[in-house]
């Protein structure tokens, strides 16, 4: 159990570095889905659709938007900080939401908590379902 905390902390640090720093060096071009939906349209240097006909023209506003919309921080002009901070916040939020939800629904009471992977004969293997 103790060793798992080290692994968790290390993994989180890597995720924070990726989302907080490396994300600024990501390709700015539309991804496979987005570019496929723009097939048939002409696009200017800013990525705005200027003409033609394509599925992306049917896009509608997002319901919420919010201060972190499009992986930035509203009102923060520094792109590097804006992307990095929103990415870091996203990592922590995702870890909290997912980890918290998994902790709440976890299986309890069978076997000593935190015992390392012991193969008990007769233990059902859920993966084989």
């Amino acid at each position: 159990m103790k060793r798992s905390w080290g692994f968790l902390a290390g993994g989180l640090l890597v995720a924070l570095l990726l989302a907080g720093v490396v994300s600024n060096f990501a390709s700015p071009h539309p991804d496979g889905l987005d570019s496929s939906l723009r097939e048939g349209c002409t696009v200017d240097a800013d990525g705005e659709i200027t003409g033609g006909s394509c599925p992306a023209q049917q896009e509608k506003e997002h319901e919420i938007g919010g201060p972190l919309a499009d992986y930035g921080i509203a009102g923060l002009d520094n792109d590097f900080l804006s992307t990095g901070l929103s990415g870091g916040l996203g990592v922590l939020l995702t870890f909290a939401v997912a980890g918290g939800a998994f902790w709440l629904v976890r299986r309890r009471g069978t076997g000593p908590a935190g015992s390392p992977d012991v193969d008990r004969p007769g233990t059902p293997t859920p993966s084989q379902g």
């Binding site: 968790l8 995702t94 870890f95 997912a98 980890g99 998994f102 069978t110």
Partner: peptide, 16 residues
């Protein structure tokens, strides 16, 4: 599958 050890690990996988 979710025991005391896998739950935080799975949170890390989502964050990663």
């Amino acid at each position: 599958d979710l025991d005391d050890r896998l739950a935080p690990m799975a949170g890390l996988v989502a964050a990663f």
